[in-house]
Design a protein around this nucleic acid. Structure first.
Length: 518
RNA sequence: GGCCGAGUAGCUCAGUUGGUUAGAGCGGCGGAAUCAUAAUCCGUAGGUCGGCGGUUCAAGUCCGUCCUCGGCUACCA
């Protein structure tokens, strides 16, 4: 075994009542890039994703589809595994809440909470709409035409009560506030932490965590008729995957607490309030960070099923290519903000950054080497100040990029890398090896060597974002070691090594005519 | 309604603790170069930094107020 530092990162588990869309792809992509980065940076990574398969909606959807719930879950869950393959995700596990290990884990956690006195039985009562299949808070109700209270949707509501177990969330108000104040960046972006804090400050009510009105869920231990409700089931997956309830297991000891729970902003509260409360109640450490990212709009329009403008990630990859899509999603928008996916912005961004700036840098330098240096890495002479400067710029990148990645600032990481890509283009333009070819072939070799070194190291750094494309590029240069430990002098290209006939890695896209066409 | 955040060049945005002529990328315009995926490099953009008022020797950067936009305000996940 190794003593490498560990890094545990999770996506939410995706609810199988819906098929994969761009939001799922986006969340997992962010985790994938982070996981790949950490692996290359020497960490022992556990990267988890999976599906959430219990609940009334699933039960009903299965019924409607005429299959039993498990078969229904099997089918939809498979789609999420298909997505992971299509997006080239490198998750170490794919967990499902219908697995036995998970049922055991949740039931154990439940018993722990009972033993510590944080679960009690009472009645769950509220305004229920049969039509909407949902409970509504008193404040949400509006006056109907005849003066009676109705749901915001206009549906009639009735007061119903059912027996339910409750979690004493109210007991954790102070502890949670202390967590937000003391644990640095527990929630990012910062603005989200403010929201969470003010939510908790507003007072916490106990949480209903069991149901008796349907049966598709994990049974409450020793209490027939009750199944666990929603979040206690779903959130616990993060523990299940690493061996809980065996807290002495190697995986648990190594990976808990998680470094990052990546979530969409819609489920932040559950991860930043309920989840740490559950863990505190069970005397378990809380995760280091919950990062809430934003949503995508489609050509400026809010995405919704009823508008019919849902972005299908499979179709997107098919039409645009995987790595450009991966790049665009993380480059275009500050992670944490909402972003707009527009065809035009995509094409312009990819052409400018991928084809023109980076792809062409690789192509022009490798091409010159291939044609003018017998297809082998040239032997460099002494480095000039300009050579040293550009190499220093490239080699100074890792700590900067690492800093951004540790805050999930993917766009800033890419921004920093592309800044140096630009410097490399300035370098080659200033040194003009095509002129040196006639005047000073030896110096030309040195310049091409330095340029190729830049490309090698940039490609290594970009691997987490675009693994396939960078593999292709590094293959062309016959680069062997590709971890971050090969950055700098440690992994210098070997003079005399044969390179392959260079091929463009990022073909340009055709941009339809119009204002601002590239 | 309450709380929080945002409003900076055509577009997308940076702008530390207030201090020389307010920056970048993309687009546009002019020039150079020709190794390369017609890619690259150099130069250029005169924007009342949402409005008004104030503090200060000095404000995009602090205070007040107004306008506009967005988020949160618990049990569908």
């Amino acid at each position: 075994m190794t003593d490498r530092p560990s890094y545990y990162i999770t996506t939410p588990i995706y609810y199988v009542n819906d098929v994969p869309h761009i939001g799922h792809a986006y969340t997992t992509l962010a985790c994938d890039v982070l996981a790949r980065f950490k692996r290359l940076d020497g960490f022992d990574v556990m990267f988890l994703t999976g599906t959430d398969e219990h609940g009334q909606k699933v039960e009903k959807s299965a019924e409607k589809a005429g299959v039993d719930p498990q078969a229904f879950c099997d089918r939809v869950s498979e789609r999420f595994r298909d997505l992971a393959k299509a997006m080239n995700f490198s998750n170490d596990q794919f967990i499902r809440t219908t697995e036995d290990r998970h049922k055991k884990a949740v039931q154990h956690l439940w018993k722990e909470l009972v033993a510590k006195g944080y679960i009690y039985e009472d009645k769950y009562a509220g305004w229920y709409s049969v039509r909407d299949e949902a409970f509504y808070g008193e404040a949400e109700l509006i006056d109907g035409p005849d003066g009676a209270k109705v749901a915001p949707t206009g549906a009639p509501v009735e007061w119903v009560e059912e027996p339910s177990f409750f979690f004493k969330l109210s007991a954790f108000e102070d502890k949670l506030l202390e967590l937000y104040d003391t644990q640095e960046d527990f929630v990012l972006p910062k603005s989200r932490l403010n929201e969470v804090r003010s939510f908790v400050k507003g007072g916490l009510e106990d949480l209903s965590i069991s149901r008796t009105t349907f049966s598709w869920g994990v049974p409450v231990p020793d209490v027939p008729g009750h199944i666990m409700y929603v979040w206690i089931d779903a959130l616990t997956n993060y523990l299940t995957a690493i061996g809980y309830p065996d807290t002495d297991s190697e995986t648990y000891e190594k990976y808990w607490p998680a470094n990052v729970h990546m979530v969409g902003k819609d489920i932040l509260r559950f991860h930043a309030v309920y989840w740490p409360a559950f863990l505190m109640a069970a005397d378990l450490p809380v995760p280091q960070r919950v990062f809430a990212h934003g949503w995508w709009t489609n050509e400026g329009q809010k995405i919704s099923k009823s508008l019919g403008n849902v972005i299908d990630p499979f179709a997107l990859i098919e039409s645009h290519g995987l790595d450009p899509v991966r790049f665009f999603l993380l480059r275009e928008v500050p992670f944490g903000n909402d972003g707009d996916f527009s065809e035009r912005a995509f094409l312009i961004r990819c052409n400018a950054d991928l084809s023109n700036n980076f792809g062409n840098l690789a192509q022009r330098s490798l091409s010159m080497i291939f044609k003018n240096c017998d297809g082998t890495v040239p032997t460099p002479g002494a480095f000039s100040d300009a050579d040293k400067a550009i190499l220093a710029a490239v080699e100074g990148l890792l700590p900067v990029v690492r800093g951004h990645m540790d805050r999930q600032a993917f766009n800033l990481a890419l921004d920093a890398i592309w800044g140096v890509v630009g410097e490399a283009n300035v370098y080659i333009a200033n040194e003009a090896p095509w002129t040196l070819k006639k005047t000073d072939p030896e110096r030309m070799g040195t310049v091409l060597y330095v340029t190729a070194e830049c490309v090698r190291q940039l490609a290594i750094l970009i691997q987490p974002f675009m693994p396939m494309a960078m593999e292709k590029m590094l293959d062309q240069m016959a680069v062997e070691g590709r971890g971050f430990d090969t950055l700098g002098e440690a992994g210098r290209l070997k003079p005399g090594a044969a390179i392959a006939q260079p091929q463009g890695v990022f073909p340009r896209f055709e941009v339809p005519a119009g204002e601002g066409a590239a």
